[in-house]
Amino acid sequence: MKNPQPHLQAEARAYWRANLRLVGILLLVWFLVSYGAGILLRQWLDQWSVGGFKLGFWFAQQGAIYVFVVLIFIYVAGMNHLDRKYGYNDPES
């Protein structure tokens, strides 16, 4: 399993670092919309409204969920890009 060629190992490390960076950023947003806007800052955000929704309440019951879906699709696109860049994409079969 171990890759004997050192330059390929360096590639693998760079790929992994890029992966961790992407996941880190996305998880930060994940935390901010749910625990941040939906829970910790909810009461403060409730002073504003979007339509009939108080903003904090909207994040907790609607907004956070929309953002979650978007986050996963950004991750999918980002990782597909990294796979191509580092040559790890599986053959289309």
Partner: peptide
């Protein structure tokens, strides 16, 4: 009730990433 809404969807972000 938001705990269920966020809790049972946000877990998929962890699962996917």
């Amino acid at each position: 009730g938001s705990v269920y809404l966020m809790g049972w969807t946000g877990g998929y972000v962890l699962l996917a990433l």
